[in-house]
């Protein structure tokens, strides 16, 4: 796969599924919300779940921005 020539170029329209943004937001909120919830249960606090949800959404958005900038 190291060979590169005119026929091994990636397709001209490197378009992506627009729903990938949705997937990233859901994944961010889900996984960091879950982390916050588990930490809450472990530490006996109640503020880490919302923090996790907001941080997850922010990370998901950041990832969307980065992937758009890359192209």
């Amino acid at each position: 796969m190291s060979q590169s020539g005119p026929f091994t170029e990636p397709p001209a329209s490197r378009s992506q599924d627009p729903w990938v943004a949705f997937g990233r937001l859901v994944a961010g909120v889900g996984i960091y919300g879950l982390c916050g919830w588990l930490l809450d249960r472990w530490l006996g606090t109640s503020f880490l779940l919302p923090v996790g949800i907001v941080a997850g959404a922010a990370l998901g958005l950041y990832l969307v921005f980065v992937s758009v900038r890359e192209r």
Binding site: V20, G23, G56, L63
Partner: peptide, 10 residues
């Protein structure tokens, strides 16, 4: 996050 989004949510 990217793993979940690309492998599990898709």
């Amino acid at each position: 996050l990217e793993f979940i989004s690309n492998i599990l949510v898709r």
